[in-house]
């Protein structure tokens, strides 16, 4: 029979941005809190803590997920990527966000970029509709949406034209 861990702190091994990280936390610790409190990776933000806003979006096994609705303990043996991890897609998106002024206060920005990074990885060439759908779960209260869409499309285009060369 499988064994229970917790409810007290239990060692949890995470693979974050290509590094193996060990932390001690209760099973109830969300991936978001583990990233922020245990690993000092504060790029993913806690805004709603209920899966309503997307500010905590990270990639788990290359797929965009809400870190606030994910248990850290359930992510053992999975590859987690955050905004701090960089990589070609993330960096291309960051450049596009800068160039197109696709942020104001910047609080939702890491989540927007990670949601789009998943898109870029999946569909090389993404048009406006795919970009909009990719960030449909990422709220921006400053209203930077038009520029976010422009930046997402530009980054996607840059990627495909780079590939073509």
């Amino acid at each position: 029979m499988p064994e229970y861990r917790g409810p007290g702190p239990t060692p949890i091994k995470l693979d974050v941005n290509g590094e193996s990280r060990l932390l001690l936390a209760e099973p109830r610790r969300t991936l978001l809190d583990a990233l922020r409190y245990d690993l000092g990776l504060t790029g993913a933000k806690k805004v709603c803590d209920r899966g309503d806003c997307g500010a905590c979006t990270v990639l788990v096994e290359g797929v965009a997920e809400y870190a606030c609705l994910t248990l850290a303990v359930a992510c053992e043996c999975k590859h987690v990527e955050t905004i701090e991890g960089g990589g070609a897609d993330v960096e291309a998106l960051q450049q596009a966000f800068l160039a197109h002024d696709a942020y104001q206060c910047g609080f939702c920005t890491p989540g927007q970029i990670m949601a789009l990074a998943a898109l870029l990885r999946r569909d090389g060439q993404a048009g406006e509709e795919q970009v909009k759908t990719a960030v449909a779960g990422n709220l921006c209260r400053c209203g930077a949406y038009p520029n976010i869409v422009t930046a997402g499309v530009a980054a996607s285009r840059a990627k495909t034209s780079a590939k073509a060369k």
Binding site: P2, R5, G6, P7, A74
Partner: peptide, 11 residues
């Protein structure tokens, strides 16, 4: 969220 124990199952 109250604390809890956690187990993974395979079957």
């Amino acid at each position: 969220m109250k604390s809890f124990s956690y187990a993974k199952v395979a079957t």
